[in-house]
């Protein structure tokens, strides 16, 4: 028996919008820790890891660990039927091949339930080791989104370099080149507007902008984003989900052929 009641149902709607274009099918894992997901895109270049901790739910009942295979496009279709202010409850029974999403309007005058078919997904779970990163950049998520979008109109890849000067995003394409440098800036009104660069060692890595642009669909989940870089490691782009957990995207770098 599984019953998870999320008062801020819009979070789940936003999570689906952030993941459904990257991953088609995924197993949602439910345990005492929380509701989680780990899935790779079809080309095994990018990975999404989601955690919504059990404490973040108003009611969290998960009698035993359960994995539910869902088609994210279909799940998104169902969650789009929930209002932004609705409370969402996820219900499942042991051995059942369906999951139920229940939506309650804030004043309880409308209650809907949508039953979705589950699927068997043979997913590869990767072990992601804890790593020391050479540089960690925290910046406003809207700024990161803007940079990725702007650069993708010029080139297909971005070189992200962190030095003591700041973080530089560079691209080149048929029409020319572009460089955007963001310097550390802590003198802002709100902490989420700050750009904070922690650098242990300078680092420079190349990534496909197509994937980074896809990651920025998580922007509505958090006002700031953390980009962790280490040479010879996939970049981690993390959006914290207030009081609940995170959505992290991993992307393998491109190397000189």
């Amino acid at each position: 028996m599984l019953e998870l009641r999320l008062v801020q149902g819009s979070l789940l709607k936003k999570v689906l919008e952030a993941t459904k274009d990257l991953v088609t099918d995924a197993n949602f894992d439910c345990s005492a820790t929380g509701f989680s997901l780990q899935a790779m895109d079809s080309s095994h270049v990018a990975l999404v890891a989601l955690l919504l901790r059990s404490e973040g739910f108003e009611h969290y009942r998960c009698d035993r660990n359960i994995s539910m295979g869902m088609n994210l496009n279909n799940m998104s279709k169902m969650l789009k039927c929930a209002g932004n202010d609705d409370i969402i409850t996820i219900k499942g029974d042991d051995g059942s091949d369906t999951v139920t999403f229940m939506f309650e309007s804030p004043n309880q005058d409308k209650i809907s339930d949508f039953e979705m078919k589950l699927m068997d997904i043979d997913s590869e779970h990767l072990g992601i080791p804890e790593a020391e990163y050479h540089a960690i950049v925290k910046m406003p998520s809207s700024e990161f989104q803007r940079i990725c979008k702007d650069l993708s109109s010029i080139g297909d890849t971005v070189v992200i370099s962190v030095t003591k000067e700041g973080v530089k995003f560079s691209t080149r394409g048929d029409i020319g080149t572009a460089n955007i440098v963001c310097r550390q800036n802590k003198t802002v009104d709100k902490p989420e507007e700050a750009t904070i660069i922690e650098m242990n060692e300078p680092v420079s890595l190349t990534f496909a902008l197509r994937y980074l642009n896809s990651f920025t669909k998580a922007t509505p989940l958090s006002e700031s984003v953390t980009v962790s870089l280490s040479s010879e490691l996939p970049v981690v782009v993390e959006y914290k989900i207030a009081d609940m957990g995170y959505i992290r995207f991993y992307l393998a770098p491109k190397i000189e052929d």
């Binding site: 790779m40 080309s43 095994h44 270049v45 990018a46 990975l47 590869e124 779970h125 990767l126 072990g127 992601i128 080791p129 890849t157 190349t206 496909a208 010879e232 490691l233 996939p234 991993y250 393998a252 770098p253 491109k254 190397i255 000189e256 052929d257």
Partner: peptide
């Protein structure tokens, strides 16, 4: 030219 690496080059199976 740049070659796209795969995640399996970095992360092992659990």
């Amino acid at each position: 030219t740049c070659k796209q690496q795969k995640l399996s080059a970095f992360f092992g199976c659990k």
